[in-house]
Amino acid sequence: MECQEIKGKGELAAFTVIVVVPAKMVAQGYGRDNPYCTGIVELEEGPKISALIIGADPRRGEVRVGMSLTVDFVDFIEMGEEKKTILAFRPA
């Protein structure tokens, strides 16, 4: 196995807006009144990856399958742990 650098650009292949959130995401401030979007991004290089989708409001129809995305990262503070960096994508 070897590591390969990727450009961090891709297209949204599938997504969801999570309203009933798991306990872990409640701790990040998400919930019924503040849902989040997560999806599967098909990278330019071919592979797909799961990631948070940020910077677009799904309630306004701003998130669509096929939209161009660019990589970003979000810091989560986990209870009793150091900050954790989560993979995210935003509109290109």
Partner: peptide, 21 residues
């Protein structure tokens, strides 16, 4: 998957968007 917020309903919901598309 869970690390980026996917839940089980969320995974099937994503599958649904792909099927719809």
């Amino acid at each position: 998957e869970a690390a980026v917020g996917f839940t089980f309903p969320g995974l099937y919901a994503a599958i649904a968007t792909a099927h719809m598309h």
